[in-house]
Write a protein that binds this DNA or RNA. Structure first.
Lengths: 132, 132
DNA sequence: GCTTGACTTCGAGTGCACTCGAAGGGGGAG
DNA sequence: CTCCCCCTTCGAGTGCACTCGAAGTCAAGC
């Protein structure tokens, strides 16, 4: 490896951010990532900043942001500081969605835990019966 | 409506549980729901118990349980009390998944909130500049 | 000089969970 | 009698986010 300090290769970046090489190229193609810097041979070299961006994208994805919104966000970021307000609103809306989602999961979890309790009781009775 | 007390029609059930009529039939066809009781004309009549079951299914779905696991669960339920242990395990595993999912959302939410803070600060500076 | 890993474009395939529409028929309420 | 809601089977379509494979090229490292 003679690229020490020159940034990560695609496969290294893939390993670091938890996306496949295919997906990294696809993200770039879809405009979620600015065209990545290249080495003399034309191969992608991901800088720390680009890796951070990718990590942020994975967090947005994992919290359920659709790819089209991520694309929108990437476009805004590309346009510079003038779009900070829009990016803020985009993130605030997303936060609300995530909070609602968490609340929904917690609500529905209660039904699951209630069932676990019931089944636990039923199981105990069975055990008690079967073991005497 | 002369079916007072005779159970809900498909469309009523759909409205109550938040699934489409198409999806209700599809759930039945996929074995997520036992064949629903019928009236003299062969039309589905959902009892309160059947509605409760559907509501439970929607909670499982909304917490991310795949349809194949829901089918497995429905099969176990159909087999009676002897499968309570398996159902308990199924729910316990699902609970763990949901808890992990909530934890993941909360973790990733932090990054989003951090960004909101940053953008908030940037926006304030801009406002301060533009308003004076 | 050969292997390895990277590059390109392209389109097709995958998995999931619906979602819809067509075609043709039946029964009950107003 | 006539709507309207329901029934059936069937297969195809949708949306999302990948995911894969093919085909051909290129350059660096051993």
């Amino acid at each position: 490896m003679s690229h020490i300090g020159a940034g990560a290769t695609v496969s290294e970046a893939a390993a670091k951010v938890g996306l496949s090489v295919h997906t990294l190229r696809w993200y770039e193609q879809e405009g979620l990532v600015e065209p990545v810097g290249r080495d003399t041979a034309g191969r992608r070299r991901y800088s720390d900043g680009e890796l951070d961006w990718l990590v942020l994208l994975t967090k947005l994805r994992s919290t359920g942001m659709p790819v089209r919104d991520m694309r929108r966000y990437a476009e805004l970021a590309r346009l510079g500081d003038g779009t900070v307000g829009q990016r803020l609103r985009l993130f605030q809306e997303h936060r609300e969605r995530v909070l609602r989602r968490i609340a929904e999961l917690q609500r529905d979890l209660e039904a699951i835990e209630y069932k676990i309790e019931i089944y636990g009781q039923m199981g105990c009775e069975y055990e008690a019966t079967s073991t005497g």
